[in-house]
Computed example of a mutant assay.
Amino acid sequence: MQNKTLIGSLRFENLVVMNNSAFGYSSLIAYCVFFTVPYIIFFNLMTSTEYSFTIVRHKGRDALFHKTTTKIGLTSFLFSFLHTSINIILTVYFFKLDILLDNSQFFYGSLINLFGVALYFMVVGFIYKIFYELKNSISLATLITYLSIGLLYFLSKLFIPPNIWTPDKDLIILPMMLVNQLSSIELLLIFVRQMGQIFALYLIASTIYLRKDFLLNDSK
């Protein structure tokens, strides 16, 4: 609704605001609050349910978890691709193409942002997987994941100084690139931090998965 008032004035400044405002399509709150649950739903729709008898009889649970990791990666990049495509298509539709080509790094920034957003959703995917293995409930794991990420966002916004790093602050690639305020080193650091989070969550999720008693969970 906020961006609706900006569409009528096709200025570069409005393009920046639409991707970096309080409720912009590529804003922090959009990723942390609005897109978290849709991604989890998308992940569950795109992946099949793992049944306990299949997992227990499998020769190696580690191989199964590697498949789960691949699914998290693929669905994250696909969801990010869809998100980015919608943003590009609607922006080209409402804005003149020469504005996008001459006055901003919109297309290049969108491509780079696609990877950053995909890594973010991989973080979300592993957090969801951890709570799912602990609670054995899709709805409960979705709720806990959503509340955890949303709470982190609001705590960061309200109580943590801007110069203190929190994971949600890495979701600023496109807005910063639009105004040429993101250096190559800063971009590299964002990707390194995101991959570090993914690796840490992977270790936690794999440990829980490999030690889980599936038959006991099914009997509950």
Rank of each mutant, 00 (worst) to 15 (best):
T142S: 11
S9P: 00
Q2W: 11
S21N: 05
T36I: 15
V179M: 06
V179C: 08
Y209R: 07
E133C: 08
T91E: 09
L210K: 05
Y39K: 02
G8I: 02
C32D: 04
N163M: 05
L119D: 04
D213P: 08
K129L: 07
I172L: 05
S27C: 12
K169R: 15
I173D: 03
A205C: 09
I55L: 02
S80A: 12
L147I: 14
L189W: 12
F191P: 01
S183D: 10
I130W: 11
L143C: 07
I172R: 15
M1C: 10
I173S: 07
M18L: 12
Y51Q: 10
L6T: 08
L178K: 13
V123S: 09
S148T: 10
D102V: 00
A118E: 06
F81H: 00
G60V: 01
S48N: 11
N180G: 01
K71N: 11
Q194P: 03
F81G: 01
F126H: 15
T69K: 01
Y25L: 06
I149K: 06
F154V: 13
S183E: 09
L215K: 09
T91G: 11
Y202P: 10
R61L: 13
N113T: 05
T49N: 13
K220S: 15
S206R: 15
A63S: 12
L97I: 15
F159K: 00
L140R: 15
Y51F: 13
N20P: 05
D168H: 15
N3D: 08
S48P: 01
D213R: 08
S148H: 03
Y93A: 11
Y51A: 04
L189S: 09
S219P: 03
Q194M: 11
Y39S: 00
I138K: 12
T70K: 06
D218V: 03
N136R: 03
T142D: 07
Y209F: 15
D168W: 13
I164F: 11
L147R: 02
G8F: 05
S139K: 11
M176L: 10
D102W: 00
N19A: 06
F65Y: 15
F77V: 04
S104I: 04
G109R: 06
K71L: 07
N3G: 13
V17L: 14
F107G: 00
I86F: 11
V37Y: 12
P38M: 14
F77C: 02
F42E: 14
I127A: 03
Y128Q: 01
A22N: 07
L187P: 03
L178M: 06
P38N: 12
M195F: 12
K135H: 05
V56E: 07
A200H: 04
D98H: 10
G60N: 14
K96Q: 04
W165P: 02
I112C: 03
M1D: 04
L101I: 11
P38R: 01
L82E: 02
E13G: 09
Y128G: 01
D168Q: 15
L216M: 07
F23N: 15
T5D: 02
T207K: 10
T75Y: 07
G60R: 14
F23E: 08
F199N: 04
K96T: 05
K4D: 09
K96H: 11
N180Q: 14
Y93Q: 09
R211C: 13
K220F: 10
N103T: 00
V33M: 13
D98Y: 15
K129A: 04
I40L: 08
A63W: 01
F81R: 00
M177W: 00
L155A: 12
I40P: 00
M177C: 03
F43T: 03
K71M: 10
G150S: 08
F94Q: 05
